[in-house]
Structure formats: C-alpha cells, structure tokens
Design a protein around this nucleic acid. Structure first.
Lengths: 122, 122
DNA sequence: CGTATATACCTTGTGACGCAAGATATAATG
DNA sequence: CATTATATCTTGCGTCACAAGGTATATACG
C-alpha cells in the first residue's frame, strides 16, 4: 500500500503546514466529540469533510497522548469487524477541554481577522 | 530589563502555543504590509492590537528568514533616532506571498469552522 | 562620575513535536 | 501463496519557536 506523504517544497507550503498543525489537535478532538471513531476513520473523516490531510504517523502519537492525559477514552472493539479497532471518544474532561479550545479558537480567529482588516490592505 | 517569557504549563496552554505559532508568520507579514516597522515595534504592535505575544528571540530569526527569502526588505535608519533601527517592509514578491497566505487562511478558517459546525456540538 | 534602566539588535542551545518510514498482524483476493 | 487491504504502533530525523544570553548606545539619578 502506498502511503500518502505531505509535500513541502517552498516557503508557502511550509507555512501551510505550520498553520495546519496549529489546529490539528482541535480537528482530532472534534472528530471524536459526537461519535466515537477509530484511528484510520478519523483520518478519512478529516480528509473527506475538510480536506485536512493527516497521516498515521501523526495521528496515533497524538491519540496516545490525548488518551494518557484523559482527554479521550479508548476502547478496543474486536467483534463484528475483521480487524480489531480502537475506538476513541471524548471524555467528560475532554468535553471541558474542547469547550475551552473552541473559545480560544474563536478568539484567535478574531484576532487574526482583526489584524487582516486593520493592517492588511493598503 | 525583565524579558517577558511565555508560560506553558498544561496541555491547553501547549495547544494555544501551537495555534499561535501557526499564524505567527502571517501576523508578522501583516504588521509590515501597509507600513514599514522595526523589530520591537512589530512586537508592540501585535501585543497592543491583537494581544498576540511574540518575543525577540522569536521575531528576529523569522524576520531574518523572511528577508533572506525576499519576502520582506530591510533598511537601516540611523538618523533621527537615538538608536539605529532596522525597518522592514513587504516586498513585491512578499505582497503576492501575503495574498496567497490570506487566501489560505480564509480557506483554513472555513474548514475548521465547518468542522465545528458539523462535528462539534451534540 | 558611576550604575541603573531603557531601547535596539542579534545568536546559541534546547526541547517539543509532527511525520516519513518502517514494522506487525490478520483477512480477503486471485 | 503472493499480493493487496485494513488496522495499529514505533523509531529517528528535521524543523522551528523561544528562553536566555550577549552587544551597543542613550538617558536618568544620586
């Protein structure tokens, strides 16, 4: 199986990478906020619904970190699927965490947009 | 003189850091897009107009990189001020660069917001 | 006169983290 | 029985922000 890799050539691409990374954790938490999803499913979900490219080498370490810190809860499901899947869902703590992240996202977005309006065009 | 340092304690703070870094280069370029500004002035400008905290150890390397890649142009001004200042302003290439960044910022913001609306609340 | 503070710039070392590239295991395909 | 697909996980590297230092000059204070 070919693995998707992310092309980073010029400075603009590099910046796009950096911006994408900024919202990565938020995007992942949103993916498991209303439904539980397993690793590859999250990757596909983000790709399909928002064009956000995330690879396995990225998502598994992050999910591990989030599980260890109690923001998400993981559960193995072996029945009914050929391959065992590890389903993640937001914990109660995670819900609070996500709410604060959303507040901050709104504030941050406002700051950048404000900058664009005031400093941006001539 | 006391130097401001950025506190990073809990996972939420860490994430805030990451998000802030994502938009850093955009914020800096916006700061020098309509007027030329010098290093410390950019720091103060961002602080005052948007609450975005940037330190000297962050901004000077970035400005150097942006200058080297031709996105901004730098000019020393020694007259009329007690201390010589290095003024930065967007180059013509930088203008195109910034426009593309703004396009991407709008798209990215839309993607995250879309995620919030579709995946977010129960 | 010294020394403390402010303004201005720059550099070095380190830590954090995404992620490409691997590995493992099982099931279905042909 | 080799290949492809699904599923997870780990290692090692590269990048980059940034704290903590440094230099130089000007003003303020007693």
């Amino acid at each position: 199986m070919k693995k998707k890799s992310i092309e980073v050539n010029n400075p603009l691409d590099k910046w796009r990478e950096q911006l994408r990374r900024g919202g990565l954790e938020l995007a992942i938490l949103l993916s498991v906020s209303s439904t539980s999803r397993y690793g590859l499913e999250i990757i596909r979900y983000l790709q399909e619904s928002t064009d956000l490219v995330v690879t396995e080498g990225t998502i598994y370490p992050i999910l591990g970190r989030l599980t260890r810190s109690g923001v998400v809860e993981a559960e193995w499901v072996s029945d009914e699927t050929p391959h065992p899947r590890k389903y993640y869902r937001l914990s109660q703590r995670g819900r609070k965490h996500l709410d604060e992240m959303l507040d901050h996202w709104n504030a941050y977005r406002g700051k950048i947009d404000h900058l664009v309006e005031t400093a941006g065009r001539i």
